[in-house]
């Protein structure tokens, strides 16, 4: 794992999922060194947990257009 990786916490759900899919196909086909495999595995587990946490903790953000601005939406305003 020589390439620089974005810290898991900074990834969006979509990015994390894309990386997960990439890692999985690498693990399926590539037999790198044990260090690499363990690193991929750990990264994968961290990504899975990150995705799950994003899903669990996310709060829907709701805003609205006001002219050419996007402002906070207040229900029944």
């Amino acid at each position: 794992m020589t390439e620089k990786l974005t810290p898991v916490k900074e990834l969006t759900y979509e990015q994390a999922l894309a990386e997960l899919e990439g890692l999985l196909s690498l693990l399926e086909t590539d037999d790198g060194s044990l260090d690499e495999i363990l690193a991929k595995f750990e990264r994968g587990q961290a990504l899975v947990q990150h995705c799950a946490a994003l899903l669990e903790k996310a709060e829907l953000k709701v805003r609205q257009l006001s002219g050419d601005e996007i402002i906070d939406f207040e229900a029944d305003a």
Binding site: L24, L27, E28, L34, I37, F41, G44, Q45, V48, C51
Partner: peptide, 20 residues
Amino acid sequence: LLPALAEIGQRFANYASIQI
């Protein structure tokens, strides 16, 4: 999505243990 994620995690564990 949550069960699908759990399954991906399981697949990771499987591949890692196969390699090991």
